[in-house]
Design a protein around this nucleic acid. Structure first.
Length: 920
RNA sequence: GCCCGGGUGGCGGAAUGGCAGACGCGGCGGAUUCAAAAUCCGCUGUCCGAAAGGGCGUGUGGGUUCGAAUCCCACCCCGGGCACCA
């Protein structure tokens, strides 16, 4: 009976659905396990990346279930976002229609995986029943002061006609489109994520990969130091403080000038009249430059003198104030004290503009700094000099108060009222307003008097109007039926027309999964009490600082707003200690790598034609001409093709070939008339993309090989956390494996010359395999689990051929193979399990237990070494004593050969693994 | 520039400081076949050797150790993150 994946997979997917096999229900008598995979964006097609992310997660969730956990493994869609709106602009399809159609299609594709998703818990973020609670959560944030409206310098994307969060801007460009972003002052809604900066730096209670923790730590960017008030010396602002943040207050006595950012509020008052034109020109030039241009420019510092001076509070010295764009308004106070002797940026600026450099640190174990000769700043350890009260204090390489000189300076500042100890963060508050249509509306109303009020809860959600213009910026703002409303006093008012950053939708979705239809709140506290928090979260590392940081912030804010109080009470009622369970969203996080396109060699082309200048004008191009090679003027591999221009790698080097329309193109492998566009060029390993033509479609693979084979291959062929290039031949290995399992599961076993040894050996392998598969699944090293199963397949195939094992052991072997493989290849194992006479699903049976005593080898091949080199091997009992092991080694003829005539210095005996005889 | 992660056969990858290369792909040889595909059996790091066996071998150089892919130091290369953060 042949293995037919099509009927098997279809049948079981249907039956599991009908029987509700994957419905998860609260059951306080069983331990729970909340396994979560990052929800997909409904782009239209499930690609290999989705399969690669989800099927191993599914396998692990199934494994946890077989181990006795009550597992929740939900799925949904992150359905708001720009691509839907672009589709509307470009193709005239309404975003809602486009999105829901994609979701429909992707649901079908997701079902073809055979994953244990509980579809009753599906949540879709663009559904009003979902975004009602996104809006409600926003309101909660407003009411608790976590969300606020503020004027700030924002990242404006002229291309997208919207603002972006800091996290969405990379190198001064929008991280999605790569288009430049400019700075602009705007009033927008923010979440006060900075308030949680310190708590977000604490990862002690969660098991997350180090790189992610590091990236978040760097992103938050905590710096310890001091705020110091300099005072403006003259002019309209005379006597006013000019505050700076510094991590090196110990170098205050070396401050020789100050620099303010071009946007600094006090700049105009500081600037003297004779300098005003120059300063104004500089500020204007700076504002015109995008972030991108500032980076693209050579790093030479620019700036101008304001004419103003400030008084250094530590020594009353007057120092000049400059304006320069290397000081950023968005960090610290937007003004710095410059200590050129001990800060490289300040040093470069000072040298360029001829400003004073005054060393205040005597380098450790070196000569005093020779100011005129210095070519770079000194940032190492030493001893303070020329610094009045802190002279002689040690300077080390540590940060903050751990550096004695910094501690001494802070103490002095505080004592003299000149400054205060301060911590500064790189992270900014999260800007959540977007001037887009396809997002959750912000449930706020602008009253005629300029104040803002929220839409009452019983009027939520504010529903997106359907009929809006999709031909430019902010469709909602241009839809009067939406914007015109009345406030709580019945006066005419205007609705907020910005929508929420879609990252907000994905910052709480795993709560909605618990009870997607619940209308008494964002989630049902009864469900939350049982299922929360998420035990295992899997997804791509590209979300390291956005989604994963926002999600952590959300949970902390929700906790502080009391949104988990009811759930905590429920936990306590069931005897579960809720302490600390609502501090973090995901207890364990693991990231999968990325599947890349396959390496591909280009067509071997034989071109005939004539040379015209530097290129060859073809009249005939033949692919794989074989013996007819000599006919060509150009023969080689096609490296690149741009329209009809070919780059061919030949023995003599690279040649450019132009293929006019009149030329004949012959590709034997493609029937019918061929044209130049069908030539395949060389492709390096890189991301899959339609334009490169290296996309592997999982749907096609499922049709050809079956979901079980695709799942097995994805788990076997890569180190999951690393990923790598696709290999179209490799999948056959997994297909053969599944077919072999089918054979093993369907043959009639014929015992012949049954031997006790062979039976015991197979039992040993069964129990060893169980342990190996288990540890692989636990540790996300799925490839080792599959490898172990393939090895068991080999043992069982051998057993079937020889007939040497006891029928009972054979049967145990087959059953164990099926159970261990069930999480990975759920369909074929279910089919075989039932055929073997079992009435209920294999996915409900208990995970096999590996008995260490049965798994233990009786005899082990012991390695005999001389001076650490393997010279012989002997089979010894597993419980051999150290003395016997040594005796075995010395009795070995081969060891004797190698030790003959030498003096045995010592013998390292590690029974039963090895004996190392050290001679000289 | 700074901070991470990683370099193991032709390829994907295994390996609590103890037999490097499990498992698979590919390749080679054989069986089967009219033939091919599929399937089955065997071999497959590299060099020397008829073989027995031996030399070399986990990016490079050094170190620790009886013993290093694994630990330490320096360097090279690849991937990722941040990037004038005071």
């Amino acid at each position: 009976m042949a293995y037919d994946h099509r009927s098997i997979e279809h049948t079981w997917q249907q039956r599991w659905e009908d029987e509700g096999l994957y419905r998860s229900r609260v059951d306080w008598n069983r331990p729970k396990h909340y396994a979560l995979t990052m929800l997909p964006y409904p782009s239209g097609d499930l690609h290999m990346g989705h399969w690669y992310a989800m099927t191993p997660s599914d396998a692990r969730a199934r494994f946890m279930r077989m181990r006795g956990h009550n597992v929740l493994f939900p799925i949904g869609f992150d359905a708001f976002g720009l691509p839907a709106e672009n589709a509307a602009v470009q193709r005239g399809v309404h975003p809602a229609e486009w999105t829901w159609k994609n979701i429909d299609r992707m649901r079908t594709q997701l079902r073809s995986m055979g994953a244990m998703f509980d579809w009753e818990r599906e949540a879709v973020s663009c559904d009003p029943s979902y975004y009602r609670w996104t809006e409600w959560l926003f309101k909660q944030m407003v009411e608790h002061g976590v969300a606020y409206r503020g004027e700030a310098m924002v990242n404006w994307s002229p291309t997208l006609q919207t603002v972006l969060a800091n996290e969405q801007v990379i190198d001064g460009k929008d991280e999605r489109t790569g288009q430049p972003v400019v700075q602009k002052m705007m009033e927008q809604w923010f979440f006060a994520i900075t308030r949680y900066a310190d708590e977000l730096l604490d990862f002690d209670s969660i098991d997350w990969p180090d790189p992610i923790r590091l990236m978040q730590t760097n992103w938050i960017g905590r710096s310890e130091g001091a705020r110091v008030d300099f005072s403006i010396a003259e002019g309209p602002a005379a006597g006013e403080p000019l505050t700076v943040f510094t991590t090196r207050p110990d170098t205050l006595w070396g401050a020789t000038f100050m620099v303010v950012a071009p946007e600094h509020p006090l700049l105009a008052e500081i600037t003297t009249d004779d300098r005003r034109d120059e300063v104004t020109a500089y500020v204007q030039a700076a504002s015109r430059r995008t972030e991108l241009e500032r980076i693209a420019d050579d790093r030479d510092k620019t700036g101008v003198f304001t004419g103003g001076y400030a008084v250094n509070p530590v020594n009353q010295e007057q120092i000049p104030i400059w304006v320069a764009d290397y000081v950023l308004i968005s960090y610290g106070t937007g003004a710095i004290m410059a200590v050129p002797a001990h800060d490289q940026r300040d040093f470069e600026f000072a040298r360029r503009f001829g400003l004073t450099v005054a060393p205040v640190i005597h380098p450790e174990g070196g000569d005093p700094l020779d100011e005129p000769a210095m070519t770079e700043s000194y940032v190492g350890p030493g001893v303070m000099i020329n610094s009045g009260p802190i002279d002689g204090v040690t300077v080390n390489d540590l940060k903050g108060r751990e550096n004695p000189s910094v501690a001494a300076a802070i103490d002095w500042l505080v004592e003299h009222g000149a400054g205060e100890e301060s911590i500064n963060y790189r992270i900014r508050d999260w800007l959540i307003s977007r001037q887009r249509y396809w997002g959750s509306p912000i449930p706020m109303i602008h009253r005629a008097d300029g104040t803002v009020e929220s839409v009452p809860d019983d009027q939520l959600p504010v529903v997106l109007p359907e009929d809006v213009p999709f031909d430019g910026t902010s469709p909602l703002a241009r839809t009067p039926s939406f914007t015109e409303t009345v406030d709580s006093d019945g006066n005419r008012a205007r609705r907020e027309t910005d929508t929420l950053d879609t990252f907000m939708c994905s910052s709480w979705y795993w709560f909605r999964y618990l009870s997607p239809a619940y209308d008494g709140g964002a989630f049902d506290p009864e469900e939350a009490a049982y299922w929360l928090p998420v035990d295992t979260y899997t997804g791509g590392a590209e979300h390291a600082v956005m989604h994963l940081l926002y999600a952590r912030f959300f949970v902390k804010a929700m906790r502080d707003m009391g949104l988990f109080d009811a759930a905590a009470t429920g936990m306590t009622a069931h005897g579960r200690d809720s302490d600390g369970l609502f501090d973090e969203p995901f207890l364990l996080l693991r990231n999968q790598g990325q599947i890349l396109g396959e390496d591909r060699t280009g067509d071997r082309v034989v071109v005939s034609g004539e040379e015209v200048g530097t290129r060859v004008l073809a009249d005939r191009v033949v692919v794989d001409a074989g013996a007819a090679d000599d006919a060509g003027v150009v023969v080689g591999e096609l490296l690149r093709r741009t329209e009809n221009i070919l780059q061919v790698s030949t023995a003599a080097g690279r040649v450019t070939v132009e293929v006019p329309e009149t030329a004949v193109v012959e590709i034997p492998s493609i029937p019918g008339p061929n044209d130049v566009n069908q030539l395949r060029h060389h492709l390096e390993i890189q991301r899959m993309s339609k334009s490169k033509g290296n996309v592997v479609n999982p749907d096609d693979l499922v049709v050809e090989y079956g979901a079980d084979t695709v799942r097995t291959y994805l788990m076997f062929a890569f180190e999951w956390q690393k990923g790598g290039p696709w290999n179209s031949q490799g999948i056959m290995g997994s297909r053969r494996f599944i077919e072999d399992v089918w054979k093993i599961g369907t043959i009639e076993y014929q015992p012949e010359a049954v031997s006790g040894d062979a039976s015991a050996q197979l039992r040993r392998r069964i129990h060893q395999t169980t342990a190996r598969v288990e540890s692989g699944l636990e540790a996300f090293k799925f490839n080792t689990s599959v490898a172990a199963l393939m090895a068991l397949r080999n043992d069982l195939t051998e057993a079937a051929r020889t007939g040497a094992v006891d029928p009972q052991v054979w049967s145990e072997g087959v059953d164990t193979l099926l159970k261990l493989l069930a999480p990975i290849a759920p369909h074929v194992t279910e089919e075989l399990w039932r055929r073997r006479g079992n009435d209920s699903s294999i996915h409900l049976v208990a995970w096999p237990v590996s008995d260490p005593e049965i798994a233990a080898e009786e005899t082990i091949t012991m390695v005999l070494q001389v001076n650490g080199k393997v010279r012989d091997r002997v089979d010894v009992p597993a419980d051999i004593t150290e003395a016997d092991a040594e005796a075995e080694a010395l009795a070995s003829a081969r060891i004797q050969e190698w030790t003959e005539g030498k003096i045995v210095r010592k013998i390292i005996s590690r029974p039963p693994k090895l004996v190392n005889v050290v001679v000289s």
